[in-house]
Amino acid sequence: MAFVGRAAAVLVLLAMLAPFVYAVWMSFAPGEILEPPTDRWSLRWYREFLGSARWTAALRTTAEVAAVSAVVSLLGGLGVALAVARYHFRGRAMLSAAVLLPMFVPAVVLGMGLLPLVRGVGLWGTTLSIAAAHSLVSLPVVFLLLRSALEAVDPDLERAARGLGAGPMTAFRRVTLPLISPSILAGMVIAVVLSVNEFTLALFLGSPRLRTLPAALWPEARDKETPLLAAASCLSVLVTLVSLGIAARVLRRDEVHKSA
Score class of each variant (00 low, 15 high):
residue 93 A to R: 15
residue 74 L to H: 04
residue 75 L to W: 05
residue 80 V to S: 05
residue 94 M to L: 13
residue 80 V to H: 06
residue 76 G to W: 01
residue 59 L to T: 03
residue 88 H to F: 12
residue 84 V to Y: 01
residue 63 A to T: 04
residue 78 L to M: 04
residue 62 T to V: 08
residue 56 T to H: 07
residue 75 L to E: 00
residue 96 S to R: 14
residue 83 A to V: 11
residue 54 R to H: 14
residue 90 R to W: 11
residue 93 A to Q: 14
residue 71 V to I: 04
residue 56 T to E: 01
residue 90 R to F: 15
residue 84 V to D: 00
residue 55 W to P: 06
residue 58 A to S: 02
residue 87 Y to N: 11
residue 97 A to H: 13
residue 82 L to N: 01
residue 76 G to T: 07
residue 84 V to E: 02
residue 96 S to P: 12
residue 92 R to E: 10
residue 51 G to M: 09
residue 66 A to M: 10
residue 51 G to I: 07
residue 53 A to N: 13
residue 85 A to K: 08
residue 79 G to A: 04
residue 93 A to T: 13
residue 55 W to K: 05
residue 76 G to R: 04
residue 88 H to Q: 14
residue 57 A to K: 07
residue 70 A to N: 00
residue 59 L to Y: 03
residue 82 L to M: 13
residue 79 G to E: 00
residue 60 R to S: 05
residue 85 A to T: 08
residue 65 V to H: 06
residue 90 R to I: 10
residue 72 V to K: 03
residue 57 A to R: 12
residue 68 V to S: 04
residue 77 G to I: 06
residue 61 T to N: 07
residue 59 L to C: 11
residue 87 Y to L: 15
residue 55 W to F: 13
residue 56 T to W: 03
residue 86 R to H: 04
residue 54 R to S: 12
residue 74 L to F: 02
residue 97 A to C: 10
residue 90 R to T: 08
residue 93 A to N: 14
residue 85 A to E: 10
residue 51 G to A: 04
residue 83 A to Q: 07
residue 81 A to R: 05
residue 70 A to G: 04
residue 56 T to A: 08
residue 65 V to F: 01
residue 86 R to M: 09
residue 69 S to D: 06
residue 92 R to Q: 09
residue 71 V to G: 08
residue 92 R to W: 08
residue 71 V to L: 04
